[in-house]
C-alpha cells in the first residue's frame, strides 16, 4: 500500500541524506556514532532471516541488504573521520555521551518477555524491533545537549522518524484489508513515533519555516 511505500522511501531518503552529509561535508558534527552503531545491530539482528533463504520478495531482500550494508558503511565513514578530520571526530565523541547499556539491557529483557516464538531467530527479531524504537535516543540526546544542529542533520532525523510514523497508517490499512494485526511492531512503532514527537514539533515550527534548528 501507499503508506508502506512512502515509509520505505522515506527510510531510503534518510540514509541517502546522512551519507551525502558525511561525504560532502567531510565532518560528522552533530551525528551520534552510538545511534549509528545501534542501527547496525538493529538491522543485523532483524534480517537474520536472510540466512534461512525464505525470502518474501525481491523487494524485501534487496532492501534488507541495502539497510545492513549502508548502516555498516555509515559507521565505517564515521570511523574514517578519526583520521581525516580528528577535530570533528573528537567533538562528536565528546558530545555523544548517552549510555547505550541502558537501552541494550532493557531491550534484551523485553525481547525475552515479548516475542512470537522462543527461538533464536524470533528473539533476535523481537530484540531488534525494541531496539529500533529507542535507537534514536543517543542522537536526540546529543541534539538536545548542543541545542542546535545543521539543517541536513535535522532533515535526516525527520525522514528517519517519518518512516516509522508512516508505518502506522500502513498497519491500520492492513488490519482492514488483510485482518492483519502484528502487535509487537505496532506497539514499538507507536513508541518510536512518540519519542520523535517533540523533535517533529520543533522541526515543523522552525526548519520547515526556514528558521534553522535551534532549541528554545
Amino acid at each position: 500500500n501507499i503508506f508502506r511505500i512512502l515509509a520505505d522511501l522515506s527510510h531510503l531518503a534518510s540514509i541517502v541524506i546522512l551519507l551525502e552529509t558525511i561525504r560532502k561535508a567531510r565532518q560528522i558534527d552533530g551525528i551520534s556514532l552510538k545511534t549509528q552503531i545501534l542501527y547496525v545491530l538493529v538491522f543485523c539482528t532483524r534480517y537474520l532471516d536472510l540466512l534461512t533463504f525464505r525470502w518474501t520478495s525481491l523487494y524485501n531482500t534487496l532492501m534488507k541488504f541495502f539497510f545492513i550494508g549502508t548502516s555498516v558503511y555509515v559507521v565505517k565513514l564515521m570511523q574514517d573521520c578519526k583520521l581525516t578530520n580528528p577535530v570533528s571526530y573528537k567533538d562528536m565523541m565528546f558530545r555523544d555521551t548517552f549510555q547505550i547499556k541502558y537501552l541494550l539491557g532493557p531491550c534484551a529483557l523485553l525481547a525475552l518477555v515479548f516475542n512470537y516464538k522462543f527461538t533464536v531467530l524470533e528473539l533476535c527479531w523481537s530484540f531488534s524491533i525494541w531496539l529500533e524504537s529507542v535507537a534514536i535516543l543517543p542522537q536526540l540526546f546529543m541534539l538536545s545537549r548542543s541545542g542546535k544542529a545543521s539543517t541536513l542533520t535535522t532533515h535526516y532525523i525527520f525522514a528517519l522518524g517519518l518512516y516509522r510514523a508512516l508505518y502506522i497508517p500502513n498497519w491500520i490499512w492492513r488490519y482492514y484489508s488483510e485482518n492483519r494485526l502484528e502487535k509487537l511492531s505496532i506497539f514499538t512503532g507507536l513508541l518510536q513515533t512518540a519519542l520523535y514527537s517533540d523533535f517533529f514539533y520543533i522541526y515543523y515550527r522552525k526548519v520547515m519555516k526556514g528558521r534553522g534548528f535551534e532549541l528554545p
Binding site: N60, K64, N170
Partner: peptide, 10 residues
C-alpha cells in the same frame, strides 16, 4: 501462510 508472512515488513 499467516505465519510465513509474520515478518514481511522492513
Amino acid at each position: 501462510n499467516q505465519k510465513q508472512n509474520l515478518h514481511d515488513e522492513l
